[in-house]
Structures are given as structure tokens and as C-alpha cells.
């Protein structure tokens, strides 16, 4: 049994009378001790997909399919059960969350909150000790528990958020853009920390980022989403170095490789904007921006097909590998 399984999950928001189909038929599996990255442009549905796991989406939202956490469908769980699962089985480091720390409460007390919420009988002393352990686990001295948020740097605040997510020893950690606002040095510290948790504690991790290079260097597998769907899902390094979907290739190719003459005075981009949910083009949703589209692409929807090391949704995935080039090719 997998730690987490998305089985044909679709999510439709209701916004001002209109339907916004943000996630469309996603299937994805995460095992314990495995980290999986989810990449894709802003608005492609990354946060929405993972929001289904702890039922964090607005009430009016329509969710179909199954989201199995340790084999049990969270979509049909009672609210009481969902509350029990939150923090203890699965925890989220929310996007931009370091701004969400309470400015007038010491960070140690904020980390202790989920602990006392879940085990109200925990003595204050035990809770404090656990907070100290958690802080040390994320590479901060236990004495930092007494700090207020404004006394910490951005990277330290981000680590406090991770400590909080780990407070109840969850088996699954969902980290939504945990490093986007951080400089490269602090980003590397946080990434090392997360990789260590997966390795040492056997945690399963879902790591969301729009930065494919970050995912490629820190996850086992990566799923790339476009317009609410997975378009490629393969081992991280293979996907980044030898992408098989033109969209992945465009994303990987847009990351400048420092020192590589091909990127000198030549920033790579991807022309055009992603489609609005609900206003999808016909055929392959990527065809208006695809550099290797053929006639068929504007009428035929490419299915997500199994390939030797994963899945790809492209009508040409079998033939044009050399056309693509990748992050490193």
C-alpha cells in the first residue's frame, strides 16, 4: 500500500458563478522514504492538487476521484477523522507561510501548538522539550524557541515552519514552494534539511516548486503539470536532463546554466501565456506554445502514456527526442 495515492483527481472551483477546472484527472503515487516534486508554471494547479490531501480547499469546490492516504480515501472521511490525520499523518508547509507566523507569539509556543492540540495531556515541560528537539532537527539552537518572528531571518523562519510541520511526526510532508523567497545559500540549507528528513526518518515528501532545477536536484521523481494535468512524470534527473515532453524541455531549457556559453547573453524563455482554466485550446492544451507541434496536435488530445521509466502525454513523445534538448543536453 502506498503512503499517498491520487487516483484520477479533478478539482473545480466555483468562482462568481463560473466553474474553474483547476486540476483535471491527476493520478500520482508517493511511497514512504520517497520524495516527489511537482513542477509547472504559476496557476497550473500544484497547490490545488495537494490541497485535496488535507481537505484544505473552499467548501464550494468540487473534488472527484480518490485521495488515498495509507489506503484510506480522505475525500470520504468524516471531519473528525480529517482533523486527526492533519499534522499527525500528513502535514503541510504552506506556500509563503513564513509570513503567516504570529508576530507577537514566541516561535517555540507556535511550534508547540499542534503538539498540545493533538495530545492535550502533554505536560508543558514535555512540550518544551519536544520543541527544542524539533528546532535542533531543523538546524536551529533550541534557545531560538524564545525568539519572536522578526528576530529571525527568512531562512530561519522557513525552518521554524518546517519544525512546526514535523511536530507530530507525520509520515507525509507536503512542502509548497518552501524555498522560493530564499537566497541560494539559505535555499541550499533548507533543501539539505528536507532531503535528510526523507533519508533519516523515512518520510514521504511532496515538494512543490516552479523551479525545475531545485526539484531535479532534491527529489527522486518529478511530475510536471500543465493546465491542470500531469504531462510528464519520470525520475528527476532523467526528466531534467532528457525531458520527453516539449513543455518540460522548455522549462528545463529556460534555466540558465551558469558557465555554459549557450546561455551567455541569451536568456531562454517560453513565449506565450498558459491558458486560463476553462478556456483550454482544442487538442493538446500546450499546442499553441509548442515548438514542435504538428497538425494533429490541434485536434487530438494526447493521453498520458506509460513509457519505460514513467509517463508522458505528447503525440510525438516516441519520435523527436533529439529535437528537444534538455537542461543539460
Amino acid at each position: 500500500m502506498s503512503l499517498l495515492e491520487f487516483d484520477d483527481v479533478s478539482v473545480t472551483y466555483r468562482s462568481g458563478g463560473a466553474d474553474v477546472p483547476a486540476v483535471r484527472g491527476v493520478s500520482l503515487t508517493i511511497e514512504a522514504g520517497q520524495s516527489i516534486g511537482i513542477a509547472g508554471e504559476s496557476g497550473c494547479g500544484k497547490t490545488t492538487l495537494t490541497g485535496t490531501v488535507l481537505r484544505l480547499l473552499p467548501k464550494s469546490t468540487k473534488v472527484t476521484g480518490r485521495v488515498l492516504l495509507d489506503g484510506e480515501d480522505v475525500l470520504t472521511m468524516s471531519w473528525g477523522k480529517v482533523r486527526a490525520v492533519r499534522w499527525a499523518q500528513a502535514a503541510v508547509v504552506f506556500q509563503g507561510a513564513m509570513h503567516a507566523l504570529n508576530p507577537v507569539q514566541r516561535v517555540g509556543d507556535q511550534i508547540a501548538e499542534p503538539i498540545t492540540l493533538h495530545s492535550p495531556k502533554t505536560s508543558e515541560k514535555a512540550a518544551q522539550q519536544r520543541v527544542g528537539e524539533l528546532l535542533e532537527q531543523v538546524g536551529l539552537p533550541a534557545s531560538r524557541a524564545a525568539s519572536y518572528p522578526h528576530q529571525l531571518s527568512g531562512g530561519q523562519k522557513q525552518r521554524v515552519m518546517i519544525a512546526m510541520a514535523l511536530a507530530c511526526s507525520p509520515k507525509l510532508l507536503i512542502a509548497d514552494e518552501p524555498t522560493t523567497a530564499l537566497d541560494v545559500m539559505v535555499q541550499a540549507q533548507v533543501l539539505d534539511l528536507l532531503a535528510g528528513l526523507v533519508r533519516d526518518l523515512g518520510l514521504g515528501m511532496v515538494f512543490i516548486s516552479h523551479d525545475l532545477s531545485v526539484l531535479a536536484s532534491s527529489c527522486d521523481r518529478v511530475a510536471v503539470m500543465y493546465a491542470g494535468e500531469i504531462v510528464e512524470e519520470r525520475p528527476a534527473a532523467a526528466l531534467f536532463d532528457h525531458p520527453r515532453h516539449p513543455y518540460t524541455a522548455a522549462l528545463a531549457g529556460a534555466f540558465p546554466k551558469v558557465g555554459d556559453p549557450r546561455f551567455r547573453y541569451s536568456p531562454a524563455g517560453l513565449p506565450g501565456d498558459p491558458p486560463f482554466p476553462g478556456e483550454l485550446p482544442s487538442g493538446c492544451p500546450f499546442h499553441p506554445r509548442c515548438a514542435v507541434a504538428i497538425d494533429r496536435c490541434s485536434s487530438e488530445v494526447p493521453p498520458l502514456q506509460v513509457v519505460d521509466d514513467g509517463r508522458v502525454a505528447c503525440l510525438r513523445s516516441g519520435e523527436h527526442l533529439e529535437l528537444l534538448g534538455g537542461g543539460a543536453a
Binding site: 508554471e41 523551479d211 536568456p267 517560453l270
Partner: peptide, 28 residues
Amino acid sequence: DASVRGEILALLLRLREELGLSLLVVTH
């Protein structure tokens, strides 16, 4: 994200070519 990023950087390079713009970019 990477796609828009490239487009904006290309614009800045073009402005330097076409207009002789000087640019100080602060970044990590």
C-alpha cells in the same frame, strides 16, 4: 517562473542594444 523570466531578461538586453541603456541589476 522560468518562462516569463527569460522573456523579461531578453527585453532588458534588447534595450541596451537599441537605446544604450545602462542597467544595474540587484539579484541573488
